[in-house]
Simulated assay, not measured.
Amino acid sequence: MTPRRKQRLTMVLIIGALLASAIGLMLYALNENIDLFYTPTEIHEGKSGQFPQVGQRLRIGGLVVEGSVVRNKETLSVAFDLMDTGPKVTVTYDGILPDLFREGQGIVATGVLQEGFVIVADEVLAKHDEEYMPPELAEQLKGIKHVKPSEAGY
């Protein structure tokens, strides 16, 4: 191998190593910022055999349990229970809730998991209707049978 080819090969290997390390660092940084989505049942029973860890940042979605909303009269703090088809999870939030927030409504909250299946949320989003809910879950929770518009004759 000529010295010029050795030099080219060395440069290609150095550039490849730098590129691979840059991609590895970007993937590591992205992994730190991922918010995984869970339902209350998945928090209690695990998701694909893995349980969320205390202190993990996550998103949780479900229905606000009727009669579970407790508001602090002196602050904007509110606590409520969320459920899907199984156990409940308590969400605490300090801030102004969306206008569409109410008991029985579907919501998505982003926050940190604490001991005792409590989520300390820093964001609460109210779903505007049940169309955002998977059809199987809507049928189990509210008896709503999803019919495609093409089948309904619209």
Rank of each mutant, 00 (worst) to 15 (best):
E42Q: 15
Q50N: 14
V91A: 00
G46P: 11
A22K: 06
L25D: 08
H44K: 07
G24N: 09
D94Q: 04
V89I: 03
H44G: 08
S77Q: 09
P98R: 00
P52D: 03
K73M: 02
M11S: 12
F51R: 11
L13K: 06
L30Y: 09
L63D: 09
A20R: 06
Q50E: 11
M83G: 05
V54S: 03
S68N: 02
D35Q: 13
N33H: 14
L97E: 00
R71L: 03
G49R: 05
A20L: 10
A17F: 13
V89D: 01
D84L: 04
L25F: 08
I15S: 12
R71E: 06
P40K: 06
I15L: 13
Y28T: 14
E66S: 05
V54L: 05
L76S: 05
E66V: 06
L82E: 00
I15M: 11
P52R: 09
T85W: 06
A17T: 12
I34T: 08
L58Q: 04
F51S: 14
I23H: 03
Y93G: 00
V65M: 10
I60P: 02
N33T: 15
V91M: 01
G61L: 05
G62S: 04
D35S: 15
D35C: 11
I14W: 08
V70A: 02
G67T: 02
T85M: 08
L97M: 03
L82S: 00
R57Y: 08
Q53M: 10
N31R: 14
A20V: 07
V70R: 04
K88C: 03
I34W: 13
E42N: 12
S77A: 14
I43Q: 04
F80V: 00
G67V: 04
E74S: 07
R71Y: 04
I14R: 11
N31K: 15
E74N: 11
P98D: 02
D35F: 15
L82N: 00
E42L: 10
V12K: 12
T41Q: 08
I15E: 11
L19Y: 09
L19Q: 07
V78H: 03
T41N: 15
P40S: 10
F80Y: 03
L76C: 05
N33Y: 11
G61Y: 01
T41L: 14
G16Y: 08
L63H: 07
S77C: 06
S48Y: 14
S68A: 02
I60E: 01
I23N: 07
P40V: 03
